[in-house]
């Protein structure tokens, strides 16, 4: 008997969104991220040709190989993914950008570019696959490694970690989220919501490195994460408003937010009322969660999206990379006028 394959609204199966087999370590947190990216984009009904994936260097940055074979990709330079994304974003702005990076890639060498791509509001989903160490170079501390962590060959990390969600918030990102490779449902919904915006959306994914940094007491380990994860809210993304009737939400316990492409995000209260549009609350949450060592996950901050960088240039609707040459060269008459003015 023929097995029915579920198709999305484009008539594509999940398999149409796959990449090559992963060569990352079995159990690597990044594999969960790859799977959820694939699932999220399929569920959204985005064509793979309408997504591009840009990465830096590291285990994180190898992961784009493992999803979306039919999407253009560029595995660039260590720390420099945002600069490639910035330039590429002008080629065809109907192609969504997935920027994949790691904690080494972003929090050290790439810190400057990270801040500036946010400041510029380049429309992209910026995913940091954060395992608190350097994986591909085999186990050095990163700038997000917890203070006091001990790693083989490295000794004790004496320096406090940077908080990339905090950094994103300070730089003005209109969408800041933190999630965990052990909470794939939340991750998928956040990715879907992030892709629905026309601005920069930062998702810090705590993604354990099973080979170099997975000891129980480590901040970025599976066990610590599972034990201490404290989602700040429940999240669900809906492409259409009609789909929301399917879930029965109790009055007063949820909040619906319409995203830029017309889709919806529903935030469900867990214990406390957390308002992700309150910047001060977000700053407090991040400060407190580090201080008291609890693992806040979910949508940390969300604001109205400022104009994207493209909006500042009054560009044609058509993709810039499709304009025919005759539309790119000024006229002969205009050059004559210039020659006259320079005499």
């Amino acid at each position: 008997m023929e097995k029915t394959v579920e198709l999305n609204r484009l008539g594509l199966a999940l398999a149409d969104y796959k990449g090559k087999p992963s060569t990352l370590c079995p159990g690597c947190g990044h594999n969960a991220i790859s799977n959820q990216i694939q699932a999220a984009i399929w569920e959204l009904g985005l064509a793979p040709e309408k997504v591009m994936k840009i990465s830096g260097i590291g285990c994180s940055s190898k992961s784009p190989n493992y999803f979306l074979n039919r999407s253009f990709g560029f595995n660039g330079l260590h720390g420099r993914m945002p600069t490639l994304a910035t330039g590429a974003s002008f080629g065809d702005s109907s192609v969504k950008i997935l920027g994949i990076s790691g904690d080494g890639d972003t929090a050290s060498i790439g810190m400057g570019h990270f801040k500036h791509v946010i400041r510029r509001n380049v429309p992209m989903v910026y995913i940091i696959e954060n395992n608190g160490c350097y994986g591909l170079t085999k186990g050095q501390f990163s700038a997000t490694t917890d203070q006091g962590l001990v790693l083989k060959h490295q000794g004790v990390n004496l320096l406090p970690p940077l908080d990339l969600c905090m950094e994103a918030l300070i730089s003005g990102a209109p969408f800041v989220a933190r999630t965990f490779s052990g909470d794939v449902k939340q991750m998928k919904e956040l990715i879907k919501a992030a892709l629905s915006q026309n601005g920069v959306a930062v998702i810090d994914v705590i993604s354990p490195c099973v080979t170099f940094n997975n000891r129980d007491e480590a901040l970025q380990s599976y066990s610590w994460g599972r034990e201490h994860e404290a989602p700040i809210q429940g999240i669900a993304h809906f492409s259409k408003r009609e789909d929301m009737q399917v879930e029965n939400f109790e009055e007063g316990t949820y909040r619906e937010i319409q995203l830029q492409d017309g889709s919806y995000m529903v935030l469900k209260k867990i214990d406390k009322d957390y308002d992700p549009t309150d910047r001060h609350a977000a700053l407090d949450l991040l400060t407190e969660s580090y201080k008291y060592h609890y693992f806040a996950t979910g949508l940390i901050y969300f604001s109205e999206v400022p104009p994207s960088i493209q909006a500042q240039y009054d560009l044609p609707e058509e993709p810039l990379n499709r304009l025919s040459s005759d539309r790119l060269r000024p006229s002969k008459e205009s050059l004559e006028a210039i020659n006259v003015s320079l005499y």
């Binding site: 840009i54 910035t86 590429a88 002008f90």
Partner: peptide, 12 residues
């Protein structure tokens, strides 16, 4: 250089 490269790659 990186942004110029990204643009060149993207067909600009």
């Amino acid at each position: 250089a990186g942004a110029t490269l990204g643009a060149g790659w993207a067909g600009l």
